[in-house]
């Protein structure tokens, strides 16, 4: 009898673990996302990854956004991850091959809460990110738009509103809704420190201009894009 109780309680613990965020991550997410480092060190290795790395998700994403998005996911990268695998030659220019894009799985509200909690525990090494790196305050967002589009040409690869801008990178009009400002500052400053083979270049942007770009991304994210679509 004692043994039966022990086995039963072990089984109960096992099923409790299965609903835990880490277990869901291993079962449902690990097929496409790297849950442990390092980032891809070669281009062919990068192409094998079907979604963004998640081993530093807790330093990258905003908790409340993660939970909402996992319940109702919508496409962030118009040409998927990685764009090289989702384009085809068109009449005038290369086009996104929509037939190769698959929607992100939908999670139940309960699972999304567990997964978001588990993801937020996965932090980047301390030397990659500094709390308070984004200064905020009274920085001009409109100057940030000039830095982003005119001086740096970032919109060549990123959409700044639905259906306007480049398609190979993630759209940026909800970037500040999705990602922590300190991460954005660090990533723009040195994308290769996070992902050596990312198709995003290091533009050697001056520190004050990085602050302005992130301020601009915050302003963009305040607009209600779902309504405007």
């Amino acid at each position: 009898m004692k043994h039966f109780v022990l086995i039963a309680s072990l089984m109960a613990t096992g099923s409790a673990l299965a609903t835990d965020g880490d277990a869901i991550l291993e079962q449902r997410c690990a097929g496409c996302h790297a849950l442990s480092g390092p980032a891809a060190q070669s281009v062919p290795e990068l192409w094998k990854r079907k979604g963004p790395d998640l081993f530093y998700a807790g330093s990258k994403y905003k908790d409340n956004w993660l939970e909402k998005w996992l319940v109702k996911p919508r496409r962030i990268r118009p040409a998927g991850y990685h764009y090289v695998q989702h384009i085809k030659p068109g009449k005038k220019r290369d086009m996104v091959d929509m037939s190769t894009l698959t929607p992100h799985p939908v999670l139940s509200a309960e699972d999304a809460e567990d997964v978001a909690e588990a993801l937020m525990k996965r932090k980047a090494p301390a030397d990659l990110i500094t709390k308070g790196d984004f200064k905020g305050g009274s920085i001009s967002a409109s100057f940030g738009e000039m830095v982003f589009s005119t001086f740096n040409g970032c919109m060549a690869c990123h959409e700044i509103e639905p259906n306007f801008g480049g398609l190979s990178g993630p759209e940026v009009y909800t970037a500040a809704k999705r990602m922590q400002e300190d991460y954005l500052v660090s990533y723009i400053r040195n994308p290769q420190a996070w992902n050596p083979k990312t198709p995003m270049p290091n533009k050697h942007t001056a520190e004050q201009n990085i602050q302005k770009i992130v301020r601009y991304l915050q302003a963009l994210a305040k607009e209600n894009w779902d309504e405007k679509k």
């Binding site: 384009i87 060549a156 690869c157 480049g166 190979s168």
Partner: peptide, 14 residues
Amino acid sequence: WQCHGMTGNGMGVN
């Protein structure tokens, strides 16, 4: 490819 295109003709997806 993202800008210069899959054939290098300058007509990339962006």
